[in-house]
Design a binder for these strands. Structure first.
Lengths: 172, 172
DNA sequence: GTTGACATGTTATACTGTAACGCTATATCC
DNA sequence: GGATATAGCGTTACAGTATAACATGTCAAC
């Protein structure tokens, strides 16, 4: 099983990966400490796995890597850590892919929106812009109170658009 | 297994159910005919099931009802019909619930947005408003081309907000 | 009435997610 | 330090969701 160095980048543009991962981990430690939450070994390693791989991983992919590090090898081990991290706003769940990805700017309140390339499987966390407000407005007209939201779009990233028609593997 | 008359209404406000279902079926026939697509028996019945039940149904729930009508009793029968209807814009998939619901206004181009009550499980298709534009704008900044989108919010509908704290069953 | 394309029926299996139980580690209180 | 309470982890077992692959049937065009 190959490592994931060759996998598509999380954002569509290149950037300082090590730095953004390190920053995210540091912020995670701080924000958990402030909230009185415990970043245990499994949770820390799970977050690291997502930060390192730098793309959306399925729960069972995460589990495989936890197993390789000597942690429990049953699904709940991964799911519990992922759910905890999601509740803490450190990880996002991408329902379209049945996958999880590390949050690139934890701490900031945001209704995460994801852009998923169907050709190269890259996933980018989109700038929120007026999205949150627009969703809130839609909910308001029905007097609905939003607690959590999922916003995901499937399409083509700039790179795959450029090579459109060539050897890309589709998601459907 | 009880019928679904007591299930939460699709929209949060009462309305003329028979009429909206009938309209939707009529529009479905027209739009499929124009596109040269075939509304076969299974597909038609599947759409009817979703329109009648008037809430989000899992694929296996749809399958149960198809079986009761004498259709094939294996998952692909339901999944194929549902996928076809989704491609045609007649059905929406609600990923948060692993469920499907009939589109309430097929034909109109729209980025469907769903409001899901975690207490009573009602699902409403939210007015699009500026949502589509906001999502498009977010994608534009990354030069991403959107082909399909999933927008779902979990929270409390007006009725469940009113009875907050009383006997409601949570989704989580 | 044969051909070809599309749709359905069916088998089998893969993938995703969770309930429940017992043990261990950590924190707290005395 | 030792008792107690709580949260987290490991494990078993299973439930729920989805799809690949192939066989059969149906329909329209020629």
């Amino acid at each position: 099983m190959p490592d994931d160095h060759s996998d598509p980048d999380l954002a569509f543009a290149p950037h300082d990966h090590a730095r953004c991962a390190g920053d995210a981990m540091a912020r995670a430690e701080t924000s958990l400490a402030l909230g009185g939450q415990r970043l245990t070994a499994v949770r820390r390693r799970t977050l690291q796995i997502l930060l390192e791989s730098h793309r959306a991983l399925g729960a069972y992919e995460v589990l495989d890597r936890l197993v390789a590090d000597g942690y429990g090898n049953q699904p709940p081990v991964a799911y519990r850590a992922l759910e905890f991290l999601e509740e803490q706003g450190l990880v996002h769940r991408i329902r379209r892919l049945n996958a999880f990805t590390a949050c690139m700017h934890p701490g900031e309140v945001h209704a995460p929106a994801f852009l998923i390339c169907r050709a190269c499987h890259a996933v980018a966390e989109a700038p929120a812009g007026t999205l949150g407000a627009a969703l809130q407005a839609a909910a308001d007209t029905l007097h609905f109170t939003i607690e959590r939201s999922t916003i995901e779009a499937v399409g083509l990233c700039p790179a795959c658009k450029a090579t459109a028609g060539t050897a890309t593997r589709g998601i459907a």
